[in-house]
Amino acid sequence: MAETRVRKRHVLVMRHSPYGGALARAAIDMAMAMGAFEQDFELLFMGTGVLQLLDDQDSHQIGLRNAGRLLSSLPLYDVERVFVDADALQHHGIGLSDLVVPAEPLDAAAIRDLLGSADHLVSY
Rank of each mutant, 00 (worst) to 15 (best):
M32I: 11
A33V: 15
G35E: 12
G35F: 12
A36H: 12
F37G: 01
E38Q: 14
E38K: 15
E38Y: 14
D40L: 14
F41Q: 05
L43F: 07
L43C: 15
L43V: 06
L43N: 07
L44R: 09
F45P: 00
M46E: 10
G47H: 12
T48Y: 03
G49C: 11
V50D: 02
L51Y: 05
Q52V: 05
L54W: 08
L54V: 05
D55I: 00
D58E: 13
S59G: 12
S59I: 10
H60D: 04
Q61W: 14
Q61G: 09
I62M: 09
I62D: 00
I62G: 00
I62V: 14
G63M: 11
G63K: 12
L64Y: 01
L64G: 00
R65W: 09
A67R: 13
A67M: 15
A67Q: 13
G68Q: 07
L70K: 10
L71W: 08
S72A: 14
S72M: 10
S73Y: 12
L76Y: 09
D78Q: 14
D78R: 15
E80H: 05
R81P: 02
V82A: 05
V82P: 03
V84C: 05
D85E: 09
D85P: 03
A86H: 11
A86W: 03
D87H: 09
A88F: 02
A88P: 01
L89R: 08
H91D: 10
H91Y: 15
G93V: 14
G93N: 06
I94W: 10
L96S: 07
S97C: 00
L99F: 07
V100L: 08
P102E: 14
A103Y: 02
A103N: 01
A103S: 06
P105T: 04
L106Q: 09
D107T: 11
D107M: 10
A110I: 02
I111M: 15
R112H: 06
L115A: 01
G116Q: 10
S117I: 02
A118S: 04
A118G: 02
D119G: 03
D119T: 02
H120F: 03
